[in-house]
């Protein structure tokens, strides 16, 4: 198990390097360091000297990938890529282009992101699974068909409409919760984004779980269990749910670490100061330092999710061995 983990972690390094290179390439094909300087310095009265100075201060005065003027290892290390990327492998994210500590920013923004994402995930999972179980319970009846139809309709609506409609009804018309924001006594700020998040996912997820349960329910052991006289509810909850765990886990565990990254849409619509809105702002402000930090963090968490998935298999199914 330990050996497996170590191997996976080592395997992650080339992936992270690849991710870094790709982000770097995509970003600097688009933006020259001069562009970034102008973006940061604003439009009024910007002189070429000011741009040169900015580049020098932020470390963008070096060549991008290969420094032909340096000697030896300096050819690779005295470059923007090396300076901006190498430190990230020890989780030192450095400073954003407007001079703020990125680690500090990530630390303070993680809370709000999680405050939305975690309840959405947990409540969502509970709702989807129960909804799917209900449909399975009443399979092939009008209720099931109505449920599936509802799912299809719900998943055919763009997420934007859920947010716009939710804000309009709940906050503007009914005055139930603040329309946006985040603050002390966070509960009332969190309710609406969480509900909208849950409803937004209900269509596709419930349908997916339903197919998993249906597949499971057609198996022989279920028939045997039923033949033994177990009630339908017992069969569903003890046998089917347990055996459906593996396919559910594959889809679910991998997203758990990514919850840290928050949701781009929800956060920017509701003005929640999380990592999702941080990412959007960084894209709009073309802040390379932040973008690559967020990409790095994202891929790190994704890989963590993959490893977690593998581990969770062994927990659910003792037959699976990690080697």
């Amino acid at each position: 198990m330990i050996a497996y983990l170590i191997r996976r972690l080592i395997y992650a390094i080339p992936i992270l390097i690849g991710v870094n290179l790709l982000t770097f390439a995509l970003f600097f094909v688009v933006n020259t360091p001069d562009d970034m300087a102008r973006m940061q310095l604003g439009i009024k009265r910007v002189t070429p000297e000011a741009i040169e100075k900015w580049k020098l201060q932020k470390g963008y005065d070096k060549p991008l990938l290969v420094n032909s003027r340096a000697a030896g290892a300096g050819q690779l290390t005295d470059t923007i890529f090396w300076h901006k990327s190498a430190s990230m492998f020890v989780l030192d994210f450095g400073y954003s282009d407007d001079g703020r500590s990125i680690s500090h920013e990530i630390a303070t923004r993680m809370g709000p992101s999680l405050a939305i994402a975690l309840p959405t995930f947990l409540i969502g999972l509970a709702c989807y699974v129960s909804f799917a179980l209900l449909m399975t319970l009443f399979r092939a009846t009008t209720l099931d068909i109505a449920g599936v139809a509802l799912c299809v309709v719900l998943m055919s609506i763009s997420g934007l409409f859920y947010i716009i409609g939710g804000q309009f009804l709940v906050s503007k018309l009914w005055h139930l919760v603040p329309i946006s924001g985040y603050g002390d006594g966070g509960f009332k700020f969190v309710v609406l984004p969480v509900i909208i998040g849950v409803i937004g996912g209900i269509g596709s997820s419930s349908r997916w779980y339903r197919t998993i349960f249906l597949e499971e329910i057609g198996r022989d052991y279920v028939r045997t269990a039923r033949a033994k006289g177990l009630s339908e509810l017992r069969v569903l909850f003890t046998h089917v749910l347990k055996n459906a765990m593996i396919p559910i886990l594959t889809g679910v565990v991998v997203v758990i670490p990514l919850l840290f990254m928050g949701s781009l849409l929800t956060e920017s619509f509701f003005g929640i100061p999380g990592l999702g809105s941080y990412t959007i702002d960084a894209i709009n402000a073309q802040d390379f330092s932040v973008v690559r930090a967020m990409v790095f963090l994202g891929s790190l968490l994704y890989i963590a999710g993959l490893i977690l998935t593998d581990i969770s298999y062994t927990m659910v199914d003792p037959r699976v061995r990690l080697s």
Partner: peptide, 18 residues
Amino acid sequence: FTLEKETIPYWNKFLQGY
């Protein structure tokens, strides 16, 4: 000063007196 990037919430909060 509260950060309010989206105009719709900004406007609604003003009308609500916030």
